[in-house]
Amino acid sequence: MSWKSTMNNALAAINQQYADVSNYYDQADLEFETQFKSYRGQAMTDAINSMAQNDVFESPVSEKQLNRQRKALSEQYATGKSSLAGQKMSALGSVESQRINYYQNLASLQQQSSASKRSSIASGIGTGIGLAASIAML
């Protein structure tokens, strides 16, 4: 396998990794939404049941209590959602760094390959000139 196809495979692997990481966190986000909905539903049911037991269910005071619960849940949601988003940013950043390193290595290899070709051609030309000069001196 030539170095070019190896490098192409490496780029394909990095791109695939980037897509995989992105998909993984998208799935995680969906999972978080589902779990949070379930958690929230359970938490609110508990709060309402508690209020019903204390006979404050139908009073405006109950609304304040419920709102405190809602606020706490919303903060949890914000924390969870932004934490996941931050992890996704960081993970994608790692892959992106790999991709930048890849482009650096690719440029280096391409340059070395060109330099090698140029060097061998220059050497061939030099040999040709030398040979021609030797023949001319005979």
Binding site: K71, S74, E75, T79, S82, A85, G86, Q87, M89, S90
Partner: peptide, 16 residues
């Protein structure tokens, strides 16, 4: 909650 989310996002973005 919004502030928490914004802060976390800003930190993550700065780190990335």
């Amino acid at each position: 909650a919004y502030a928490t989310a914004h802060k976390a996002l800003a930190e993550a973005r700065a780190s990335a």
